[in-house]
């Protein structure tokens, strides 16, 4: 009886530790937050997204506030990016979305710069002001050939 009691205890502890490990992986490492369905979903259209890809981070002043969830071409063949942002974020309608690179060769991300208007963006709307990825080749070309297109 007592040996079976010890075994039950061991199994109980094992299952609890295992479930805690699963929960840790999901919530802490995987960034799962419950009830995340009502996130703020916005769209932004760029001329050139460079190396931006699905799951690229979105930052405001360096702080991560969401991920890129979908990239597709719109009717005018310009890349249209879906942004999945944390639900409690309030962004003005003149917010600007720019594609930046972390470091010289780092990953690309979308930097949001909040504006000054009173009206707020709601889910499904477009971020109107966008700035495309800086193309290093074009930049070098511009320097070598003495300016040209800024």
């Amino acid at each position: 009886m007592s040996s079976s009691g010890t075994r039950d205890l061991a199994v109980g502890i094992f299952v609890v530790i295992g479930l805690m490990a699963l929960a840790f992986l999901s919530v802490q490492v995987g960034g799962l937050s419950l009830g995340r369905q009502g996130g703020l979903v916005l769209f932004a259209t760029f001329d050139d997204i460079g190396g931006l890809s699905n799951r690229s981070p979105i930052r405001i002043g360096g702080v991560r506030v969401g991920r890129v969830t979908e990239i597709e071409l719109d009717a005018n063949l310009r890349p249209r990016v879906q942004l999945d942002l944390s639900p409690d974020l309030e962004l003005t309608i003149d917010t600007m979305a720019a594609i930046r690179t972390s470091g010289l060769l780092g990953d690309q991300f979308i930097a949001l710069e909040p504006g000054a208007e009173d009206e707020m963006l709601v889910s499904g709307e477009d971020v109107v002001f966008t700035e495309s990825a800086t193309n290093l080749d074009k930049l070098i070309g511009a320097v070598v050939h003495g300016g040209g297109n800024d």
């Binding site: 992986l25 999901s26 490492v29 995987g30």
Partner: peptide, 10 residues
């Protein structure tokens, strides 16, 4: 933390 996503990875 920033690379691992719940749905795709965990």
């Amino acid at each position: 933390e920033s690379a691992v996503a719940f749905r795709e990875d965990v």
